[in-house]
């Protein structure tokens, strides 16, 4: 009885014909691909993503004012570019970005940009307290999203988040996290640039 040649059963046939170099290549290529994919994610927050609403018109919603009666009337804002910032009193990065937002709201008023600050999952009193402490701006509408409908409509992942809408009502970009003045201004500039038809 003759036993067959030692054969591990792996593809390629008998030992002499087995293409060992092929296996080495597969191992090497696989390692490079895996390394590349994992390494590309270093330093990135896996929760940031691109909003699918970019390029879409801003949905209509009704939002009550934080400190006055009545709700924000979007008809009055027609023809203006919008910076919509979601914030909360308990949100730490919101405090650091607040001065930048206030400054920009003053600086861009004459270019037809209006700012809307939407309070996210917070109590009215604490939100007002935040504004008392960190300051209010003109050219700024402060409203509340009491039932979290608006954040669902806009696909908000957390606070702070800022949306930039152009004069035709199209959402142009979204920034997740605390924003600084330079980034804020570049997004506003982009929103003020008309889309090529």
């Amino acid at each position: 009885m003759t036993e067959p040649l030692a054969d591990s059963g792996l593809p390629g046939g008998s030992p002499k014909a087995r293409p060992v170099w092929l296996y080495y290549t597969i191992i090497g290529v696989a390692a490079i691909i895996v390394f590349g994919v994992f390494a590309s994610r270093f330093g990135e927050d896996p929760r940031m993503n691109e909003s699918p609403l970019i390029g879409q018109p801003l949905p209509q919603f009704t939002l009550d004012y934080l400190e006055q009666d009545g709700s924000l009337n979007f008809d009055e804002l027609e023809g203006k570019a919008l910076v919509i910032n979601f914030w909360a009193s308990w949100c730490i990065p919101c405090r650091s970005e607040h001065p930048a937002l206030n400054a920009a709201s003053a600086g861009y008023e004459d270019q037809g940009v209006h700012f809307i600050g939407i309070v996210y999952q917070d109590s009215r009193d604490r939100a007002i307290g935040f504004l008392d402490q960190f300051g209010r701006a003109t050219n700024y509408s402060y409203v509340m999203d009491s039932d979290s409908r608006t954040i669902i409509e806009l696909g908000v992942f957390g606070v702070p988040e800022t949306y930039f809408v152009d004069k035709d009502g199209i959402i142009r970009s979204r920034y997740q996290g605390g924003i600084d003045l330079a980034t804020l201004e570049s997004h506003i500039q982009e929103a003020l640039t008309p889309l090529t038809p």
Binding site: P4, V20, Y24
Partner: peptide, 29 residues
């Protein structure tokens, strides 16, 4: 993260590479 990733890559390449190099020895008849 990067340190562990390098370690993982070295383990994978060295182990499977060594296995392929010795494949004619680890036979099952």
């Amino acid at each position: 993260g990067p340190a562990l990733l390098w370690f993982l890559m070295i383990i994978l390449v060295a182990s499977f590479g060594l296995f392929v190099a010795r494949i004619h020895v680890v036979a099952s008849s």
